[in-house]
């Protein structure tokens, strides 16, 4: 209730807005311990994904006799073997870091593609409506009610199960979610009085869409993208685990779990750590969404700012 807040607070807030927006958001982030931890973890994963292969490709391939089947937490073979080594004597830590690139690249690209295509289709279907909107919606429903794993299976059966095809399949199966969400928001937003107001002033369709509607939809899309990224990562790992996703010699976390499964009795760590990496990344993305939902809402953010003072 803005009106129930004393005027002095409101006045103080005024300068909190423009100039101090950055620090305020940072402070609200720091206050949410889970969100802070998630962001730090995700940044580390991102750094690994970008830099990992160029820095550690050698270590990931190097065969170290001492490190053969080395159990985790023993430093006999050096700190690279802190998570253990595989049957060939390769460092598990180095391999996880190198594999992060494919894992992150595939899910991020797939989500980005579905955001772009789904978002655009959703804008069109929501704002224009008509028969095109109806057809798009039916199509989205058809894809959504269908288990994405089966969709992936049939496409990857027909085409080669390489990196780009996996991205394509994952993107296609997630487009409907973005389309439906954006469409629903646009349908609601275009009835909002401030959009009607812009139209009544003579604003062009593109101005209404990109000045008034898109910025309102953006936070929802960002939140959903983070959530979907977690989901897509799980599906990709599942596909790779089943042997119909990414194929060796490419490597992803899901594939590493599948490899490690054969050594479950003797070297549990081979399957454990990559799976844990998937889980922690997915969890961080989920936690991040919870926080994003709050800061991307202007009224909620204003509350945070009030509290920050």
């Amino acid at each position: 209730m803005p009106s129930s807040i004393p005027a002095s607070v409101t006045a103080e807030l005024q300068d909190a807005h423009g100039r101090r927006k950055g620090p305020v958001i940072l402070r609200s982030l720091l206050r949410d311990r889970y969100a802070t931890a998630s962001i730090i973890f995700l940044l580390i994963v991102l750094a690994f994904a970008i830099l990992g292969p160029s820095l550690l490709a050698e270590q990931a391939r190097a065969l170290n006799l001492k490190g053969r089947n080395a159990p985790p937490f023993s430093l006999d073979a050096g700190w690279m073997f802190i998570l253990g080594g595989d049957a060939l004597g390769r460092s598990l830590l180095a391999r996880i870091i190198v594999a992060s690139q494919n894992t992150i690249l595939i899910s991020a690209t797939a989500v980005l593609l579905s955001v772009l295509v789904g978002g655009l289709l959703g804008l069109v279907a929501g704002y224009r409506g008509g028969w095109l909107g109806d057809v798009l919606l039916r199509l989205a429903d058809a894809i959504m009610t269908f288990p994405s794993m089966l969709l992936a299976m049939i496409v990857l059966f027909v085409f080669e199960p390489g990196v780009s095809n996996v991205i394509f399949v994952l993107a296609v199966s997630r487009i409907p979610i973005f389309m439906r969400t954006v469409r629903a928001e646009v349908l609601e937003l275009k009835q909002r009085m401030f959009v009607v107001a812009a139209r009544a002033t003579g604003a062009s369709t593109s101005r209404v869409l990109f000045f008034h509607i898109a910025p309102m939809v953006l936070p929802t899309i960002i939140n959903l993208a983070a959530l979907e990224m977690a989901f897509v990562m799980l599906v990709e790992s599942g596909l790779s685990f089943l042997g119909i996703g990414i194929q060796p010699p490419e490597v992803t976390w899901g594939l590493m779990v599948a490899d490690g499964r054969n050594y479950l009795g003797s070297a549990w760590w081979l399957a454990f750590w990559p799976g844990l990496a998937i889980m922690l990344t997915a969890m961080s993305l989920n936690l991040l969404t919870n926080w994003l939902r709050v800061v991307t809402d202007p009224v909620e953010r204003w509350r945070l700012e009030t509290e920050a003072r």
Partner: peptide, 22 residues
């Protein structure tokens, strides 16, 4: 529930096998 929603199910399955069966 957050952990439940974030765990890859194939991994839970084999960790489960490792712990409860093996």
């Amino acid at each position: 529930s957050l952990i439940g929603a974030s765990m890859p199910n194939f991994w839970v399955a084999i960790v489960g096998v490792l712990v409860f069966a093996v």
